[in-house]
Amino acid sequence: MAEQVALSRTQVCGILREELFQGDAFHQSDTHIFIIMGASGDLAKKKIYPTIWWLFRDGLLPENTFIVGYARSRLTVADIRKQSEPFFKATPEEKLKLEDFFARNSYVAGQYDDAASYQRLNSHMNALHLGSQANRLFYLALPPTVYEAVTKNIHESCMSQIGWNRIIVEKPFGRDLQSSDRLSNHISSLFREDQIYRIDHYLGKEMVQNLMVLRFANRIFGPIWNRDNIACVILTFKEPFGTEGRGGYFDEFGIIRDVMQNHLLQMLCLVAMEKPASTNSDDVRDEKVKVLKCISEVQANNVVLGQYVGNPDGEGEATKGYLDDPTVPRGSTTATFAAVVLYVENERWDGVPFILRCGKALNERKAEVRLQFHDVAGDIFHQQCKRNELVIRVQPNEAVYTKMMTKKPGMFFNPEESELDLTYGNRYKNVKLPDAYERLILDVFCGSQMHFVRSDELREAWRIFTPLLHQIELEKPKPIPYIYGSRGPTEADELMKRVGFQYEGTYKWVNP
């Protein structure tokens, strides 16, 4: 592979701008107003304001973009700056750019259920340069409990009458099928589907988006991507930290609602779906819905739930269990780990287990898709061969690698495990991989909904998990304890083995 010439960040961002501006969906010269509902909250200060700053800094926003914060707290732009700027990672050389960014910011205080507050917000936006005809993007960085009041008031008082209007809704989209349907029906009564952007930030990850290209742009994968060759698929999300004093919020939802029903299920769809007619948003989402419709409700015998306990040999936070978090209700049975087996009941995947695993306070930070292939028929190497695996590593250190057998150097035919490896950090030294939120917010500006969740996708996802969630809430089974920093409950490994996964433990990928 030829040595790549190092590029400056300015040059890299210039390439990104060229890609972005050559499309006809990006209205570079139009006025846009980006409204952050819930501007005083954690999500706004840690993710949304920093993301908008990065896009502005790199010249990736339309030229005439204004940012308006809205929340109940009586704040000023200076207050917003004070709480969000520490997350910007701005350099001293960017000081003038930073001043320009905050000059485009404003803030309006108001209630979430008060019509007069929204009329005041609308008047404020109209007073901005060309504000009355601007395109408006409303980001709901809010708890779902206020979605209905907020969307109703936005629709009645704050819509642009000339430009387009788009609304970005953060997960969780309800707690179960019934609450999700209620919320979807409410929002759909106010906005068209092409105006609604239900954001799952995992769909903005580079390697998640790469799944489609790997599958449908490489001839070698087509013939082997089926039940005849693939023994099982494992989708993993692991965090090495616990709730760390923020367990009160987590306890309301648990690990299945927080990660599995959305992030992991979306990745499953991209692995299992048929080739779409095109890369058009609805063509892709149509195929994802077909996959979900082929999955039956989760069966309790295919589920393992766990909850982390303190590690007596650990240090600091590792010595504390979930129930030691003062914000967690006493005696909570909320799971911090889950392993679930699903089956896609169609011709391509009949009988292939899709194993979804996620948890907190585990032994490493990792998100990946792992396809394990069947054993080689007619073994001539005296059971020395391990199964081939194709691994798409989402985070950290984005990579695609194939675990395969090669001859060990020497005189004899002794096979050993090795890999074919594409590590993004080595291959793409001159490429700026956008943060997931950067990519998705740019998608909203461009009107691309491919990486957002459609209402029928959402409904099918909740259909699969709601009976299990209701059973857990009714019966309150005690989750299996696992030690902070471990791989999780051993019962999860036993479940995976029972459905056909072979864990060798003899080879570990190392970032080159």
Rank of each mutant, 00 (worst) to 15 (best):
A6K: 15
R9P: 06
R9C: 09
T10S: 15
T10R: 15
V12L: 15
I15N: 08
E18L: 09
E18A: 08
E19I: 15
G23S: 15
D24H: 10
H27M: 12
H32D: 07
I33D: 02
F34K: 01
F34Q: 05
I36V: 10
M37L: 09
S40M: 03
S40K: 04
L43P: 02
A44K: 02
K47E: 01
P50M: 04
T51M: 10
L55T: 08
F56I: 06
P62K: 07
N64Q: 12
T65H: 04
F66E: 09
I67K: 04
I67E: 03
I67P: 02
V68S: 01
Y70D: 04
Y70A: 07
A71F: 00
A71M: 03
R72H: 02
S73E: 05
L75K: 10
A78V: 11
I80F: 08
I80P: 01
R81C: 08
Q83F: 11
Q83N: 10
E85A: 13
F88H: 02
A90D: 06
T91M: 13
T91G: 11
P92D: 11
P92Q: 10
P92R: 11
E94M: 07
K95P: 03
K97M: 13
L98I: 12
E99F: 05
E99V: 08
D100F: 11
F101M: 00
A103Q: 15
N105E: 02
Y107H: 07
V108E: 07
A109Q: 12
G110I: 01
Q111D: 12
D114W: 09
A115L: 14
Q119I: 13
R120N: 14
L121E: 01
N122G: 12
N122V: 11
N126P: 05
N126D: 14
L130S: 15
G131M: 09
A134Y: 10
R136G: 06
L137S: 07
F138M: 08
Y139G: 03
Y139K: 04
Y139R: 03
L140N: 05
A141R: 02
L142T: 06
P144V: 02
T145P: 08
V150R: 03
K152V: 10
H155K: 14
G163C: 10
R166D: 01
V169L: 07
V169I: 12
G174K: 02
R175W: 04
D176P: 02
L177I: 10
L177K: 09
Q178T: 13
S180Q: 05
D181Q: 10
S184Y: 08
N185E: 11
N185T: 10
S188Q: 08
S188V: 08
L190T: 10
L190C: 14
L190E: 07
R192T: 13
R192Y: 13
E193M: 00
Q195A: 11
Y197D: 00
Y197S: 01
Y197Q: 04
R198C: 02
I199W: 03
I199T: 08
Y202I: 02
L203E: 00
K205A: 01
K205N: 00
K205V: 05
E206N: 07
E206P: 08
E206A: 06
M207P: 04
M207D: 00
V208C: 14
V208L: 14
L211F: 13
M212K: 04
R215G: 00
R215P: 02
R215H: 00
N218T: 03
N218L: 01
I220D: 00
F221A: 07
G222V: 08
P223E: 08
R227K: 13
N229I: 05
N229Y: 05
A231R: 10
A231L: 04
C232H: 06
V233L: 05
V233Y: 02
I234H: 15
I234T: 15
T236S: 12
T236V: 06
F237T: 07
F237I: 11
K238M: 02
K238Q: 00
K238F: 02
K238P: 02
E239Q: 04
E239I: 02
G242S: 07
G242N: 06
T243G: 08
E244K: 12
R246V: 03
G248V: 01
Y249I: 03
D251E: 06
D251M: 00
F253W: 02
